[in-house]
Simulated assay, not measured.
Amino acid sequence: MDILDHLTIPSPLHQVRTAWSAAAAIELYIKRDDLIHPIISGNKWRKLSGILSHYDKTTYREIITFGGAFSNHLVATAASCAILKIPCTGIIRGEEPKQLNGVLKLCEMYGMRLTFVSREEYKEHNRQLGIYEEKLFIPEGGACEQGTLGCFEVLREIELKEISKVFVACGTGTTIAGMSKFMDSTNDGTPLYGIQVLKGNGYIAKDLQDVYGIHNVTIYDEFHCGGYAKTSPELMDFIKEFTSETGILLDPVYTGKMMLAIKKLCISGDIKKGDKVIAIHTGGLTGWFGKVDEL
């Protein structure tokens, strides 16, 4: 069976209304890439799709990829390989724990073989990409030029006419790079904004320029809530409120920070009355496995 038979493509676009979006008098829409698949969701699928379509599937017999202990990419790859009936191995950063967390248990349930390596060894190999000895290596998070090709498709599924701004969370920049390439290909002038979810002034903006040659996006780097995978009481309270108001669950690592940033940009006036705003829900809800104690 084709993996696309398991996926909801294109994903829907839903308009949502909250107290703060109503107060700001904006129209807020969410591109529901979280609904592509319960596990292979959001930009996890988008990046994988670009990579898998780039390589001839008859030239490899196994997929090997990399990630941390709570990696959404790892479990999405494991689920994809189960559907595709391809053996897969996950190279995990750090020592093997006495007990696997929920994400790694899911990886095993989908048939992924887990190999734990030192942080030093991981850092040396985690960007490996390509086919070697009939094994397809996919870098951590699917972050590579081929990964951007799948993210190109996110905005192809949306009618952008009359849209004022598009927002997406950024961890590596791969997703927004693909979206930017789509904008360039269509000469669409809709402003594209990234919310950097990790510390580092100008980190994502610099990578976009140096790695992908992209200069036509705006990156906000002040909404990381303490750093990558870090949270704050303000963030967690916001996610709870947003979920109860809209029925849409955000994750605490990426989309929660993005949506909180959108709220704050409404308050600051960067997003103006009458603006029509699209936020990309990049999935990653398995990120809650490591954060439930903070609720």
Rank of each mutant, 00 (worst) to 15 (best):
D221Q: 05
E222H: 14
E222I: 14
E222P: 11
T218P: 09
K230Q: 14
I195H: 03
K206L: 13
D210F: 01
Y193I: 13
M179I: 11
S180K: 07
L192N: 10
I214D: 02
G202T: 10
D188P: 10
K199M: 08
G213I: 13
S185D: 07
F182P: 11
D184F: 08
T186L: 08
Q196C: 03
N187W: 01
I176N: 03
D221T: 01
V197D: 04
S185E: 02
H224W: 00
Y220N: 07
C225Q: 12
K230I: 05
A229G: 05
D210Q: 15
N201Q: 12
G178C: 06
G194P: 08
I214F: 02
V217N: 08
V217G: 09
G189E: 11
F223P: 05
T190C: 14
F223S: 00
K230T: 12
Y203I: 14
I204W: 01
H224G: 08
E222F: 12
A177R: 01
A229S: 12
L198E: 10
V211Y: 06
I214G: 01
N201Y: 05
T186G: 02
G227A: 12
D210T: 13
N216Y: 07
I204N: 00
I195M: 00
G200N: 07
I176Y: 02
A177I: 07
G178D: 09
T174D: 01
F182L: 15
N216A: 02
D221P: 04
S180G: 06
L192E: 02
L208S: 12
M183P: 02
T231K: 00
Q196G: 06
Y203W: 13
